[in-house]
Amino acid sequence: MAERERAALGARTGPLQVRAVVMDRDDVRRAVWRIAHEIVERNHGAQGLVLVGLQTGGAWVAAELGRVIEAVAGVQVPVGTLDVAYYRDDIRLRPVVPAAATEIPVEVDGAVVVLCDDVLFTGRTVRAALNALCDHGRPAAVQLAVMVDRGHRELPIRPDYVGKNLPTRRDEMVDVSDEGVVLGEVPPEVPATGAAPAPSGPASAVEGRGR
C-alpha cells in the first residue's frame, strides 16, 4: 500500500523510518480471522459474496479473507482485483498509471461485493473504486473491509469491517502487509542528493506512477 500513501505525501520517496510496530504478524492474522467471521455473520453466510481487492495493497487482504471464509463457511468465494487508476480524481495532478490488472472473475450484478483494502485514509480511492465497480455491473450491495483505518477522511465514506483503528498524524506513513503494520514517516527528500534523471519520452510515465 505504501504506494498510494506515499503519493498522498508528495515528493517523499525516501525509505520509511519506522517509529512503532502497531501490529505483528499474528495480530494481522487474528484480524483477518475476525473480519472474515464478521463478513459471514453480517451476510448470513457466504453465498453471493464477491471479494474485490484494490490494487495493489488490497489484493492480499482479499485473498486472505477468501481463504479464511472458505475455511469458516465452506464456500469458495470469488476473489478479484480492481485497479482504480483511471477513476482517480488526482489524475490531472500527477502521473497516474495502473500498477496492476483489473480482474473480476464473476458478474457483479446482484452480488454483495466486499471491497478490500489495506489502509483507509482520505476515502478518495474508495470513491474511485465505487465508480469503477459500477462500470462492471450493479451489485446488490457494496461493503468495505480495511486492515487499518487511520482517519483523515475527506469524503463521507465509512468502513464496514476494520482490522485496527489507528490514530495518525497526516504526514505519517502506515505500512501494511501480512507481516504486520508499521507506523513511521518518510523524511522529505534532500533535493541535492541524486535528483531523478529528467524523464524522456513516453516511457517516463513509468517513473511517475503513483508511488
Binding site: D90, I91, L93, R94
Partner: peptide
C-alpha cells in the same frame, strides 16, 4: 497525467 508530482491526494 499532469506530470507534476506532489499535490496529489490518495
Amino acid at each position: 497525467s499532469g506530470g507534476s508530482l506532489g499535490s496529489g491526494e490518495a
